[in-house]
Nucleic acid binder design. Sequence first.
RNA 1: GGUCCUGUGGUGAAGUCUGGAGUUCACGCCGGCCUGUCAAGCCGGAGGUCGCGGGUUCAAAUCCCGUCGGGACCGCCA
Length: 587
Amino acid sequence: MATSTTLRTHVCGELNASNVGARVTLAGWVSRRREHGDKLAFIDLRDFSGVMQCVIDDGAEARSEWVVQITGTVTARPTGTVNTNLPTGEVELTNCSLTVLNAAEPPPFPIDQRADDVDENIRLKFRYLDVRRERMQRNLRLRASVNSAIRTAMETQGFVEVETPLLMPSTPEGAREFLVPSRKEPGSFYALPQSPQLWKQLLMVAGMDRYYQIARCLRDEDLRADRQYEFTQLDAEMSFVDKDDVLHAISQAVMAAAHAATGVTPPPIERITWHDAMNRFGSDKPDMRFGLELVELTAVFASTAFKAFATAASIKGLRVDAATYPEAAAMGRNKLDQLTDRAKQSGAKGLVWMKVGAAGVLDSPVAKFLSDDEKSALITALGATTGDLLLLVADGWSTTCTVLGTLRNDIARPPVHEGPYRYVWVVDFPLFVGVNPTTNKPQPGHHPFCHPHPDDLAKLETDPLNVRALAYDLVLNGWELGSGSIRIHEPELQRRVFHLLGIDDETADRKFGFFLQPFKYGAPPHGGFAFGIDRLVAILAGEENIREVIAFPKTQSGMDPMTNAPGPVEPAQLLELGLRTLPKPAN
RNA sequence: GGUCCUGUGGUGAAGUCUGGAGUUCACGCCGGCCUGUCAAGCCGGAGGUCGCGGGUUCAAAUCCCGUCGGGACCGCCA
């Protein structure tokens, strides 16, 4: 890496014992100054690469975060003064001459690890100072090397980078869009892309064969630790492929990214069906770093007298094993009530808890409703032993799974970045998830262009909710990284799916015409994928929050404390766009 | 739209439950001393509309109501 410039010969972090004797010039920020009177001071000079201790013996003034240029001789530190905590700690710069390039006001917070505790609003207000810190430098550089590794992996597989428009027509359904008013056509609007989905499929029709883009996507939905208005995806699409081709190609990119970040290539990414993920982990984004799997109990209570269980389609349980989760297994009544509330919030009618006492005696509010046979069958099914806490939910299959999945995570899920990394493909998603209560039509699980599983085509109209899709998600440590599918390339099949969704031919033409028309001109079978780079990098960087791997993120309310965006604009700008604003509704 | 946590010199915290003078601690800042430190040390100093508004009270950082900002989550994110 060529780092020397007109103003410097080296960078701070690259100097070590092998440079002893060299006369060098460095430029950077004063990280810290330790004065010992007029005749001796130490300045820790910082740049992006690290810190170098400079010995100043002429009393030159330089304070925190001043920008200075220092010329000096690389010298081995005297015996006993080596700093083993510093990569450059064996050497220092002596016989220094210092030039102040720019003085600076004291920073509002320390430019080091201590700022991790500073109110995030203040970090964001002074983001340019926050990014000076080693943590942010490391995160952003890690992100850059992940991007670079992904590009290489995609290009070696024949993917071609194509840029797609940011200004596009608004498309119905899906996430809320950001709109951009048209000046030439007042009253008309562009939308910013939620993803390049439509464009990349058109590129397949256009014969590009393999497309990729590290693409910015914009969605006007509420923000979270893992969600920003704008985020970045590796977006890819390929022609003449089936599901395995896509999973293989994307795996190559993920492996390369992981290797770039950690130096280790993960083992081949395992697969689990959506149905198994729900059954075992109660989630379509299973965190498989820990056990506490759901146990099927419906048969145990097949002929029970306990009403809440007798009428339920599905009964499952968790065994909170006292040896593995001593704290959770021993939780008191108060905590159990909180857990019950949580179960109810997640959609359950209630939560049955049982504590396993000596000799298999069950301590539970509902124990008296269960027969001795049921109790012993329950203990056998769960493999329960003394001290365990058992949690049971009885409801429809889907509710039972998701409620227990939520409790499983609440009880035992480690922080997202804690190893080991467990990548998993969740495959065979259902084509539809539930029924829209207002239209009484099935709702697409992914998007309406997903190809139904060929084996399930016959029941598309008769049993739509049990039709699988050629759709798949990539999950890492319980975070959904991304999703993809084989697309519908046959106009007739697309029409069938639209009809199921309650979209007639005329509506389809009106809403998606620009997208459907091209498919009449010879669309190749194709499929693709997109995964969130912010999320992947956050986990690989050991961060809980994607804001830590974004240079200039927004707060949870969508503001930027540094620029104060969003803000008002001049009336003249609104006039030019043919816009008028309404007063803020009174509370 | 909702639930929970949070806001005190430049920064981080304690004080708030149980009202009694802007009190305390650490870092930073300014000044002095200091020739081997490395998140230097010692001494001194400055710095606050306790987010904002209203109410209760003899008295409010503290209690009540409202509001704004930040964070986690639910809804939402095809």
